[in-house]
Simulated assay, not measured.
Amino acid sequence: MTEYRWLTYDTVDDGRIAVVTLNRPRQRNAQHRGLLVELDEAFTAAQYDDAVRVVILRGAGTAFSSGHDLGSRDAVVEREPGPDQHPSFQGNGATRDGIERMWLQEWHYFVQNTRRWRDLRKVTIASVQGPVYAAGLMLMWACDLIVADTTAEFADVVGARLGMCGVEYFAHPWEFGRRRAKDLLLTGDSLTVQEAYRLGMVSRVFEAGELEDKTLHYARRIAGLPSATSLMIKESVNQAQDHAGFHNSLQTSFNLHELNHSQYAVLTRGESVLYGPELGGKPWNEHGPVVPTSKTEVKLSS
Protein backbone atom coordinates (compact mmCIF):
# COMPACT_ATOMS: atom_id res chain seq x y z
CA MET A 1 0.00 0.00 0.00
CA THR A 2 1.18 3.51 -0.81
CA GLU A 3 2.86 5.40 2.02
CA TYR A 4 1.63 8.98 2.13
CA ARG A 5 3.47 11.95 3.58
CA TRP A 6 0.91 14.75 3.17
CA LEU A 7 -2.37 12.90 3.72
CA THR A 8 -3.79 9.80 5.35
CA TYR A 9 -5.84 7.06 3.71
CA ASP A 10 -8.10 4.79 5.75
CA THR A 11 -11.08 2.54 5.16
CA VAL A 12 -13.97 1.74 7.48
CA ASP A 13 -16.97 -0.60 7.48
CA ASP A 14 -15.07 -3.53 5.96
CA GLY A 15 -13.60 -1.27 3.31
CA ARG A 16 -16.88 0.12 2.00
CA ILE A 17 -15.95 3.72 2.86
CA ALA A 18 -12.55 5.27 2.18
CA VAL A 19 -11.51 8.33 4.18
CA VAL A 20 -8.84 10.61 2.68
CA THR A 21 -7.58 13.28 5.09
CA LEU A 22 -5.44 16.20 3.96
CA ASN A 23 -2.76 16.35 6.64
CA ARG A 24 -1.00 19.71 6.62
CA PRO A 25 -2.90 21.34 9.50
CA ARG A 26 -0.14 23.86 10.30
CA GLN A 27 -0.55 25.25 6.77
CA ARG A 28 -4.36 24.93 6.99
CA ASN A 29 -4.03 22.18 4.39
CA ALA A 30 -2.73 24.54 1.73
CA GLN A 31 -2.10 22.61 -1.47
CA HIS A 32 1.44 22.20 -2.70
CA ARG A 33 2.45 19.78 -5.44
CA GLY A 34 3.33 16.93 -3.11
CA LEU A 35 -0.14 17.01 -1.56
CA LEU A 36 -1.92 17.19 -4.92
CA VAL A 37 0.02 14.28 -6.40
CA GLU A 38 -0.65 12.16 -3.32
CA LEU A 39 -4.32 13.09 -3.44
CA ASP A 40 -4.50 11.85 -7.02
CA GLU A 41 -2.86 8.60 -5.91
CA ALA A 42 -5.33 8.22 -3.05
CA PHE A 43 -8.36 8.80 -5.26
CA THR A 44 -6.94 6.32 -7.78
CA ALA A 45 -6.47 3.73 -5.03
CA ALA A 46 -10.07 4.19 -3.87
CA GLN A 47 -11.30 3.88 -7.43
CA TYR A 48 -9.29 0.68 -7.98
CA ASP A 49 -10.60 -0.97 -4.80
CA ASP A 50 -13.91 -2.65 -5.67
CA ALA A 51 -14.84 -2.84 -1.98
CA VAL A 52 -15.00 0.97 -1.75
CA ARG A 53 -18.39 2.49 -2.47
CA VAL A 54 -18.00 6.02 -1.04
CA VAL A 55 -14.94 8.24 -0.59
CA ILE A 56 -14.85 10.97 2.06
CA LEU A 57 -12.40 13.84 1.56
CA ARG A 58 -11.65 15.84 4.69
CA GLY A 59 -8.96 18.08 6.16
CA ALA A 60 -7.11 17.72 9.46
CA GLY A 61 -7.21 20.63 11.88
CA THR A 62 -9.38 23.72 11.79
CA ALA A 63 -9.60 24.24 8.02
CA PHE A 64 -10.49 21.96 5.13
CA SER A 65 -8.11 23.80 2.77
CA SER A 66 -7.00 27.42 2.56
CA GLY A 67 -6.10 27.13 -1.14
CA HIS A 68 -2.85 26.96 -3.09
CA ASP A 69 0.35 26.98 -1.05
CA LEU A 70 2.00 30.25 -2.10
CA GLY A 71 5.03 30.26 0.13
CA SER A 72 5.62 27.57 2.73
CA ARG A 73 9.11 26.09 2.97
CA ASP A 74 7.80 22.76 1.65
CA ALA A 75 6.35 24.47 -1.42
CA VAL A 76 9.57 26.39 -2.13
CA VAL A 77 11.86 23.37 -1.71
CA GLU A 78 9.79 21.08 -3.94
CA ARG A 79 10.02 23.58 -6.83
CA GLU A 80 13.76 24.21 -6.72
CA PRO A 81 16.33 22.01 -8.52
CA GLY A 82 18.07 19.63 -6.16
CA PRO A 83 17.57 16.36 -4.32
CA ASP A 84 14.27 17.46 -2.76
CA GLN A 85 12.66 18.69 -5.99
CA HIS A 86 9.34 17.01 -6.65
CA PRO A 87 9.45 14.88 -9.84
CA SER A 88 6.43 16.72 -11.23
CA PHE A 89 8.67 19.77 -11.71
CA GLN A 90 10.75 17.82 -14.23
CA GLY A 91 8.05 17.14 -16.82
CA ASN A 92 4.49 17.93 -17.90
CA GLY A 93 5.69 21.26 -19.25
CA ALA A 94 8.00 22.15 -16.34
CA THR A 95 11.04 22.45 -18.61
CA ARG A 96 9.31 24.60 -21.25
CA ASP A 97 9.80 28.36 -21.57
CA GLY A 98 7.50 31.35 -21.14
CA ILE A 99 3.85 31.05 -20.25
CA GLU A 100 3.79 27.57 -21.82
CA ARG A 101 5.45 26.21 -18.67
CA MET A 102 2.77 27.56 -16.33
CA TRP A 103 -0.02 26.78 -18.78
CA LEU A 104 0.92 23.09 -18.99
CA GLN A 105 1.78 22.65 -15.32
CA GLU A 106 -1.45 24.24 -14.14
CA TRP A 107 -3.48 22.27 -16.68
CA HIS A 108 -2.04 18.96 -15.46
CA TYR A 109 -2.07 19.59 -11.71
CA PHE A 110 -4.92 22.05 -11.15
CA VAL A 111 -7.46 21.43 -13.93
CA GLN A 112 -7.05 17.93 -15.31
CA ASN A 113 -6.54 16.44 -11.84
CA THR A 114 -9.68 18.13 -10.57
CA ARG A 115 -11.77 17.07 -13.55
CA ARG A 116 -10.57 13.50 -13.12
CA TRP A 117 -11.59 13.52 -9.45
CA ARG A 118 -14.98 14.94 -10.36
CA ASP A 119 -15.51 11.97 -12.68
CA LEU A 120 -14.22 9.32 -10.25
CA ARG A 121 -16.18 6.08 -10.53
CA LYS A 122 -17.19 6.27 -6.87
CA VAL A 123 -19.44 8.67 -4.98
CA THR A 124 -17.32 11.30 -3.21
CA ILE A 125 -18.19 13.48 -0.23
CA ALA A 126 -16.26 16.61 0.78
CA SER A 127 -16.47 17.10 4.55
CA VAL A 128 -15.40 20.68 5.21
CA GLN A 129 -14.82 23.05 8.11
CA GLY A 130 -13.31 26.47 8.63
CA PRO A 131 -12.06 28.62 5.75
CA VAL A 132 -12.46 27.02 2.31
CA TYR A 133 -10.70 29.54 0.12
CA ALA A 134 -9.71 29.70 -3.56
CA ALA A 135 -8.21 26.32 -4.54
CA GLY A 136 -9.90 24.80 -1.49
CA LEU A 137 -13.12 25.35 -3.43
CA MET A 138 -11.69 23.32 -6.32
CA LEU A 139 -11.11 20.24 -4.17
CA MET A 140 -14.54 20.59 -2.60
CA TRP A 141 -16.33 21.17 -5.90
CA ALA A 142 -14.73 18.07 -7.42
CA CYS A 143 -16.76 15.98 -4.98
CA ASP A 144 -20.32 14.83 -5.64
CA LEU A 145 -21.65 15.98 -2.28
CA ILE A 146 -20.52 18.60 0.22
CA VAL A 147 -21.24 18.54 3.93
CA ALA A 148 -19.95 21.19 6.31
CA ASP A 149 -19.96 22.25 9.91
CA THR A 150 -21.08 25.65 11.17
CA THR A 151 -17.53 27.06 11.09
CA ALA A 152 -17.23 26.72 7.31
CA GLU A 153 -17.02 29.75 5.04
CA PHE A 154 -16.31 29.94 1.32
CA ALA A 155 -14.47 32.53 -0.76
CA ASP A 156 -12.40 32.92 -3.89
CA VAL A 157 -10.10 35.82 -3.03
CA VAL A 158 -7.76 35.63 -6.02
CA GLY A 159 -9.48 38.45 -7.91
CA ALA A 160 -9.43 40.90 -5.02
CA ARG A 161 -5.96 39.92 -3.76
CA LEU A 162 -3.99 38.62 -6.73
CA GLY A 163 -5.70 40.28 -9.67
CA MET A 164 -6.73 36.93 -11.14
CA CYS A 165 -10.06 36.04 -12.76
CA GLY A 166 -10.77 33.12 -10.43
CA VAL A 167 -9.10 29.82 -9.68
CA GLU A 168 -8.12 27.38 -12.42
CA TYR A 169 -11.12 25.04 -12.10
CA PHE A 170 -13.75 27.69 -12.77
CA ALA A 171 -16.98 26.12 -11.51
CA HIS A 172 -18.19 29.34 -9.85
CA PRO A 173 -21.22 30.09 -12.11
CA TRP A 174 -22.42 26.51 -11.70
CA GLU A 175 -21.99 26.47 -7.93
CA PHE A 176 -22.98 30.03 -6.97
CA GLY A 177 -25.16 31.13 -9.89
CA ARG A 178 -24.04 33.71 -12.45
CA ARG A 179 -24.62 37.00 -10.66
CA ARG A 180 -23.59 35.75 -7.24
CA ALA A 181 -20.41 34.37 -8.84
CA LYS A 182 -19.58 37.79 -10.27
CA ASP A 183 -20.26 39.47 -6.94
CA LEU A 184 -18.12 37.06 -4.92
CA LEU A 185 -15.27 37.12 -7.44
CA LEU A 186 -15.18 40.91 -7.80
CA THR A 187 -15.31 41.55 -4.06
CA GLY A 188 -13.53 38.52 -2.63
CA ASP A 189 -16.22 38.37 0.07
CA SER A 190 -17.03 35.09 1.80
CA LEU A 191 -20.22 33.07 1.86
CA THR A 192 -21.56 31.59 5.09
CA VAL A 193 -22.34 27.91 5.33
CA GLN A 194 -26.05 28.67 5.78
CA GLU A 195 -26.16 30.65 2.54
CA ALA A 196 -24.18 27.92 0.79
CA TYR A 197 -26.88 25.50 1.91
CA ARG A 198 -29.61 27.79 0.55
CA LEU A 199 -27.80 27.94 -2.79
CA GLY A 200 -27.71 24.13 -2.93
CA MET A 201 -23.91 23.96 -2.90
CA VAL A 202 -23.83 22.29 0.54
CA SER A 203 -26.06 19.29 1.23
CA ARG A 204 -25.91 19.10 5.05
CA VAL A 205 -24.81 21.46 7.84
CA PHE A 206 -23.65 19.92 11.12
CA GLU A 207 -22.70 21.44 14.43
CA ALA A 208 -19.01 22.01 15.10
CA GLY A 209 -17.58 18.90 16.71
CA GLU A 210 -20.06 16.60 14.99
CA LEU A 211 -18.74 16.80 11.44
CA GLU A 212 -16.63 13.64 11.41
CA ASP A 213 -19.25 11.35 12.93
CA LYS A 214 -22.21 12.71 10.97
CA THR A 215 -20.30 12.64 7.69
CA LEU A 216 -19.65 8.97 8.30
CA HIS A 217 -23.35 8.36 9.00
CA TYR A 218 -24.20 10.15 5.75
CA ALA A 219 -21.64 8.08 3.82
CA ARG A 220 -23.06 4.86 5.27
CA ARG A 221 -26.51 5.73 4.05
CA ILE A 222 -25.21 6.27 0.51
CA ALA A 223 -23.00 3.18 0.65
CA GLY A 224 -26.15 1.17 1.26
CA LEU A 225 -27.32 1.73 -2.32
CA PRO A 226 -26.32 -0.73 -5.04
CA SER A 227 -23.01 0.56 -6.41
CA ALA A 228 -24.30 0.56 -10.00
CA THR A 229 -27.27 2.71 -8.95
CA SER A 230 -25.02 5.24 -7.24
CA LEU A 231 -22.73 5.47 -10.24
CA MET A 232 -25.62 5.87 -12.69
CA ILE A 233 -27.14 8.66 -10.58
CA LYS A 234 -23.77 10.41 -10.46
CA GLU A 235 -23.18 9.94 -14.17
CA SER A 236 -26.67 11.13 -15.12
CA VAL A 237 -26.23 14.41 -13.24
CA ASN A 238 -22.63 14.94 -14.42
CA GLN A 239 -23.54 14.31 -18.05
CA ALA A 240 -26.51 16.65 -17.82
CA GLN A 241 -24.12 19.33 -16.57
CA ASP A 242 -21.59 18.54 -19.31
CA HIS A 243 -24.27 18.74 -22.02
CA ALA A 244 -25.16 22.18 -20.65
CA GLY A 245 -21.59 23.27 -21.36
CA PHE A 246 -19.72 22.66 -18.11
CA HIS A 247 -16.72 20.87 -19.61
CA ASN A 248 -16.17 23.43 -22.37
CA SER A 249 -16.66 26.37 -20.03
CA LEU A 250 -13.96 24.99 -17.72
CA GLN A 251 -11.48 24.88 -20.58
CA THR A 252 -12.36 28.35 -21.83
CA SER A 253 -12.10 29.88 -18.36
CA PHE A 254 -8.78 28.14 -17.73
CA ASN A 255 -7.35 29.64 -20.94
CA LEU A 256 -8.49 33.08 -19.74
CA HIS A 257 -6.79 32.35 -16.41
CA GLU A 258 -3.51 31.75 -18.25
CA LEU A 259 -4.03 34.91 -20.31
CA ASN A 260 -4.47 36.74 -17.00
CA HIS A 261 -1.08 35.41 -15.84
CA SER A 262 0.44 36.47 -19.17
CA GLN A 263 -0.86 40.01 -18.69
CA TYR A 264 1.14 40.43 -15.49
CA ALA A 265 4.19 38.72 -16.95
CA VAL A 266 4.18 41.31 -19.75
CA LEU A 267 3.54 44.28 -17.47
CA THR A 268 6.31 43.27 -15.03
CA ARG A 269 8.73 42.11 -17.75
CA GLY A 270 8.66 38.60 -16.37
CA GLU A 271 9.04 39.51 -12.69
CA SER A 272 5.60 38.28 -11.65
CA VAL A 273 2.54 36.48 -12.99
CA LEU A 274 0.27 38.03 -10.35
CA TYR A 275 -0.87 41.52 -9.40
CA GLY A 276 1.36 42.56 -6.51
CA PRO A 277 3.92 45.12 -5.34
CA GLU A 278 5.59 45.28 -8.76
CA LEU A 279 2.40 46.93 -10.07
CA GLY A 280 1.39 48.88 -6.97
CA GLY A 281 -0.60 46.16 -5.22
CA LYS A 282 -0.11 44.60 -1.80
CA PRO A 283 1.80 41.37 -1.19
CA TRP A 284 -0.69 38.51 -1.12
CA ASN A 285 -0.04 37.87 2.59
CA GLU A 286 -0.55 41.46 3.77
CA HIS A 287 -4.25 41.80 3.06
CA GLY A 288 -6.74 42.02 5.92
CA PRO A 289 -9.32 39.39 6.88
CA VAL A 290 -11.83 38.12 4.35
CA VAL A 291 -15.10 40.03 4.72
CA PRO A 292 -18.44 38.15 4.85
CA THR A 293 -20.85 39.10 2.09
CA SER A 294 -23.93 41.01 3.20
CA LYS A 295 -27.38 41.52 1.72
CA THR A 296 -27.72 45.07 3.06
CA GLU A 297 -24.19 46.39 3.56
CA VAL A 298 -21.00 46.98 1.59
CA LYS A 299 -18.06 46.25 3.86
CA LEU A 300 -14.59 47.41 2.91
CA SER A 301 -11.76 44.91 2.90
CA SER A 302 -8.16 45.97 3.47
Rank of each mutant, 00 (worst) to 15 (best):
V291C: 04
N255V: 08
R28Y: 08
D14R: 09
R5W: 01
T114L: 14
R33S: 12
V237Q: 02
E153V: 00
E106W: 08
V52M: 09
H247S: 12
V76G: 07
V20F: 02
F110M: 07
V158R: 08
A181M: 10
E195M: 08
M140V: 03
R198Q: 08
G276E: 09
D13S: 10
R180D: 08
S253C: 13
S230E: 07
V52T: 14
M164Y: 04
D149E: 09
T293N: 08
L274P: 00
L35H: 05
K282I: 00
F154M: 05
K299L: 11
R96H: 10
D14G: 10
R26I: 02
W117F: 14
V147D: 04
S294T: 00
D69P: 07
L274W: 07
P83V: 08
Y133H: 12
K214M: 08
H172A: 14
D119E: 15
T187W: 07
H32A: 13
N255F: 11
R101L: 13
L57F: 00
A60C: 02
R73N: 10
L57W: 04
T150N: 07
F254G: 04
Y197W: 01
V111D: 07
R24V: 09
E271L: 12
V237Y: 10
H86D: 15
A171G: 02
L185F: 06
R58L: 03
G61Y: 10
S272R: 15
H287M: 00
R79Q: 15
W6L: 06
L57A: 04
S301T: 13
A63Y: 07
L300D: 13
D40Q: 11
E78N: 05
E286R: 13
T150S: 14
L231W: 15
T268A: 03
Q239S: 09
A134K: 01
E3V: 03
V290R: 01
V237D: 03
L186S: 08
L35A: 13
F89L: 06
P25F: 02
R53F: 02
Y48V: 09
V128K: 03
Q112P: 00
M140N: 00
R161G: 02
T187R: 05
K182Q: 11
G61F: 07
T187Q: 09
S127N: 03
E175H: 07
P277R: 15
M138Q: 14
V123I: 14
